[in-house]
Write a protein that binds this DNA or RNA. Sequence first.
DNA 1: GTGAAAGCGCTAACAC
DNA 2: GTGTTAGCGCTTTCAC
Lengths: 332, 332
Amino acid sequence: MSVTIKDVAKMAGVSVATVSRMLNGTTTVSTAAAEKIKQSIEDLGYSPNFLGRNLRRSETNIILAIIPAAEQSFYNEVLRGMQNTALKYNYDLLIGISNANYDTEKRLLSMLTNRVVDAAVILGSKLTGDELNSLGDRFPIALCCERVDGASVLTVTVDDENASFAAVQAVINKGHRRIGLVTVKAPVPSALSRKIGYINALERNNILLNEDYIFSGGYDYDNAQTAFSYFASLKEPPTAICCVSDMLAVGVIKAAITSGTEYGSKLSVVGFDNIPLAGLYTPGLATVEQPGFTLGKTVIEGLIKNKNNDRKENNYIKLPYKFIERESLKDF
Amino acid sequence: MSVTIKDVAKMAGVSVATVSRMLNGTTTVSTAAAEKIKQSIEDLGYSPNFLGRNLRRSETNIILAIIPAAEQSFYNEVLRGMQNTALKYNYDLLIGISNANYDTEKRLLSMLTNRVVDAAVILGSKLTGDELNSLGDRFPIALCCERVDGASVLTVTVDDENASFAAVQAVINKGHRRIGLVTVKAPVPSALSRKIGYINALERNNILLNEDYIFSGGYDYDNAQTAFSYFASLKEPPTAICCVSDMLAVGVIKAAITSGTEYGSKLSVVGFDNIPLAGLYTPGLATVEQPGFTLGKTVIEGLIKNKNNDRKENNYIKLPYKFIERESLKDF
DNA sequence: GTGAAAGCGCTAACAC
DNA sequence: GTGTTAGCGCTTTCAC
């Protein structure tokens, strides 16, 4: 049915080995042969079957990136960095969506054990540290953007704690002293680090931590609405609210505007991530920028290095952030 | 190095054929054998090498989705529909990002000729109709969300023309008569259809088409700013502006708000796509909803049917839309 | 119900 | 510089 390397060899009057050599440039091939082979490939419309090649080489040169979802995030930049870097090392990057679902993530990761892909990087894993470690013993894997507690696999994230510290410090520098935090109830490591950064910044500035100023809920927009109502109902509501993600921050702003209250109109809001929407929103959202491209680049470089070395370096790399000032952060 | 089906067979005291049969359920295997095989698989931590299986079967059960980028769009819903449906037919969905770049798209599509994936669906192709047709002759491919002129491969999109008509009609129903259109200069088929829908709606309502009311530019946000300035500078500026995408619409709104003018504050704006951001923006963006999940579901069903049948049905399927009313569309 | 053996398409010794 | 051949891990006839 399909045209194989054998057909090319026959037509060019050489052995399959010579065709293979020519295709892979492993050894020099006489120009005469090369010419005939090229012609035959052209005439036959041959293209190599990687299933054969991969089986023989037992590698596919494909890296799998697993993301929870493809929407509303800075992941596109991360993926661009990953793809760009992978290509430099002659790897293709393919993406699987886990929908933040344990079983789906497992199914995608089985591509590692099934040898469909050579390596994987997970952005926001649902697996436990132990599960990741045991997988990491056998295959090159890495975490990006979100660490997992107890996992000693290569991990690359932004420096969440200090980034959050910087954001809160920026708020304080604007004269705010009553500062709220919107975080998530789920034990998300990055959110926990950001909360610590928030607490540290208050302490450093001699502001007493007020537990009433910390709201924990779900990830979504509705929850942000609830958060706003909650803060607005306090006797001494915060004059600025920091959120552990831009999506949450946008939700708070929308709730504030929709409320039509003076409190809402004066409130400062700060996000985290600098998703594309942050600059587009009205008002523009002050936030912490994650170095998306560099996150992706760094994790792929480490991953490929690990793949080629016996001794894996399962470092935890924290990348620098940048605070982005926009209209949603006002002077007190 | 790695544990293979042979090891399992040896340990279980059966032939590799029996192990294979058990793994694939092709024939019944005696319970005694089954028990021993299961045990050996467990003990050895065996998992099948799909490279061998795929080579033998010459199929991989992987469908490749090619998207231009992973940000700010309704693609996530489309991908969810695709993944969900693919899984039902025992296919995995993997995603490649083309960055709207011809060469990158080509490289990804070479996974088809290299037998790395069984089929592909392209969301926003940079290839010509002829190129797609010749590829489509040899492999199951499909287009989703965006058609390509001259391509007679399976294509699934929303009914752009009528959807746009409906959006403009909704604007007219609010009493507007001076209605602008922001579209793109590039010859994007869906944008052209949407423009036709706009023109038809005006005609149907006996509104004279005014070429000054049609602004063509780039895709991005900056361009939307330019569009707003342009319209604002007209002697008789439009009271409502329809855009061929939500991103453009959001840009226009942002420009309108930022302008601080009375014109800006009264202007109605309508988008297209209903990206997640549309409902989140302030004001909420009136727009046309694309049936993301269904688009994805439909294209995968057609693709798999084509893969299994000799006679391919390269239909062009147009799915129904829904107009979503939100605050950005006001009474005139 | 099971085993032996061929072979999917390719690469990599090995010999010349 | 080139051909012969073994074999990557698996499925699937074909016997029994």
